[in-house]
Design a protein around this nucleic acid. Structure first.
Length: 455
RNA sequence: GCCGCUAUCGUCUAGGGGACUAGGACGCCGGAUUCUCAGUCCGGAAACCGGGGUUCGAAUCCCCGUAGCGGUACCA
């Protein structure tokens, strides 16, 4: 392994829909490996599958990568756009005899296997039909070894592989062929991708060998599973990057959490800046077993990142998520809520009362507005009316003598106030909340509550 | 069926023959912070898939089994 020559990696998603969390992690690992090693990252879109590869799907993936703040040095290169290069390589194999045309259908292959045994790959007969599919000749003996950076050498018996199709009858080329050609011609030195490609790698190695190309180094990442141990999918909640964004997670937190899924530091560090991730990440240190995506831990990581954000950045992130202006009012609101939310989506419930009338939470009202509530609110209103100022300290000075004076526990005073000004029983600190609301609105909301209690 | 990968607390992991009475983190449970919720702090329960080897000694190495996952398309 030469550390001296610059490495070149690629992230090569197929645009069949939104970018999945698994795909996002693969992108992240490629990005971290490239940045760590001072190498280059190429973005290649595997769009040789005609129907499913729509421009919308491609845009969705680019969008997700941009949101994650994972940049690339080259591309996006459309694999389909390299069709001419693929055709040249295909001709080369046809001429050398490494590949041949075969008219066998899937059914024929099945029948062949029924006859020859399931442990033996299909071997066809060359035909002289221009419209027949092209298969690569696979040796009957020996084995093909994938020297995996994560798993070590993994060998596959050649005879268990079919002479697989590398080009359709119409001349369009198939995945395992296109990938091998592209990786070689684009000068990729490390292929970091999902485990689901491990069994396909020998085919790519065979193509590379037939073409006379040296193979890149491979690293196959363990797959990501949902909480039920099955492959991650829509039914597991937030399964795509888009959903993560909508759920109010911070890109930096997502990067941190995703990095930890399958990779850990030997000193148990959990929270890391992206710079630290880049500095410490090594593909060879990635674990071998599948990991389960646990949104609870992501929430915790996200909460930590949110609390550490400078107020300005915090307000901007909240504003973007709420699609509002990051104005002074929002900043002030964020200031009292920052310690309490784990996701951007949770912030609004905490600060809503500053922008809209109290919410209608009947349950909270019934629970809090009991006998002692009326006198408490009347006393609070009077005290706030006379308060020397209306910053949190002044509000506290005005209110703190009330519990003792009324002979009740503090909660009996503060909770009714909370419900009166916010409509519900959960909010930021009561003094901060009152101060942020302002004297006028605070008094009028307390008044309204008093009126309602009297009726 | 065939080929392959994987297997430490519920989850993410540390561990690469003796330092392991198996460590950390999330989550969970309990306590504290006497304004809610959250946060923070303290404490607790919780794991080496099973069976054989190798070795003075195995979570660590080997084999078998079991389970999970992946591949096996003229999909990517």
């Amino acid at each position: 392994m030469s550390e001296d020559s610059p490495i070149r990696l690629r992230f090569a998603p197929s645009p069949t829909g939104a970018l999945h969390i698994g795909g996002a992690r693969t992108a992240l690992y490629n990005w971290l490996a490239a940045r760590h090693g001072g190498g280059e990252l190429v973005l290649r879109i595997e769009d040789t599958d005609l129907e499913r590869s729509t421009p919308e799907n491609v845009e969705q993936i680019l969008d997700a990568l941009r949101w994650l703040e994972l940049d690339w040095d080259e591309g996006p290169v459309s694999q389909a756009s390299r069709a001419e290069r693929h055709a040249v390589a295909l001709q080369q194999l046809l001429h050398s005899g490494a590949a041949y045309r075969d008219s066998a259908t899937a059914k024929d292959v099945e029948a062949w296997k029924a006859k020859h045994g399931a442990d033996r790959g299909y071997r066809g007969e060359p035909v002289d039909e221009p419209g027949a599919a092209v298969r690569l000749r696979v040796p009957d003996d020996g084995e093909t070894v994938v020297d995996d950076l994560i798993r070590g050498p993994v060998s596959f018996p050649n005879r268990s592989y079919d002479d697989f199709v590398i080009a359709r009858g119409d001349g369009s080329v198939l995945y395992n062929f296109a990938v091998a050609v592209d990786d070689a011609e684009m000068g990729i030195t490390e292929v970091v991708r999902g485990d689901d490609h491990l069994s396909n790698t020998p085919k790519q190695l065979l193509v590379l060998a037939a073409l006379g190309h040296a193979p890149p180094r491979y690293a196959h990442l363990p797959l990501l599973h949902g909480p039920d141990g099955k492959k991650l999918s829509k039914r597991h909640g937030a399964a795509s990057v888009q959903e993560l964004r909508e759920a109010g997670y911070l890109p930096a937190a997502v990067r941190n959490y995703l990095a930890l899924l399958g990779w850990g530091t030997d000193d148990d560090t959990t929270l890391m800046s992206t710079e630290e991730l880049v500095r410490r990440f090594r593909v060879a240190d990635v674990g071998k077993s599948a990991a389960i995506f646990d949104e609870k831990k992501l929430r915790w990581v996200n909460g930590r990142f949110m609390r550490e954000l400078p107020l300005d950045d915090y307000a901007k992130a909240v504003a973007r998520h709420l699609e509002r202006e990051a104005d002074a009012a929002l900043r002030a609101a964020c200031a009292i809520a920052q310690e309490k939310a784990q996701t951007l989506a949770e912030v609004w419930a905490l600060i809503r009362f500053l922008f809209e009338p109290p919410v209608d939470d009947e349950k909270a009202w019934r629970k809090v507005m009991t006998e002692g509530a009326l006198p408490a609110l009347e006393a609070a209103g009077a005290a706030l009316q006379e308060a020397a100022g209306f910053d949190p300290e002044a509000v506290e000075i005005a209110l703190s003598p009330l519990p003792e004076r009324l002979g009740v526990k503090p909660g009996k005073v503060y909770q009714p106030i909370r419900v009166a000004i916010t409509g519900t029983s959960v909010s930021p600190g009561i003094f901060e909340s009152l101060a942020a609301l302002g004297r006028e609105k605070s008094l009028s909301r307390i008044d309204s509550a008093v009126v309602r209690l009297r009726s």
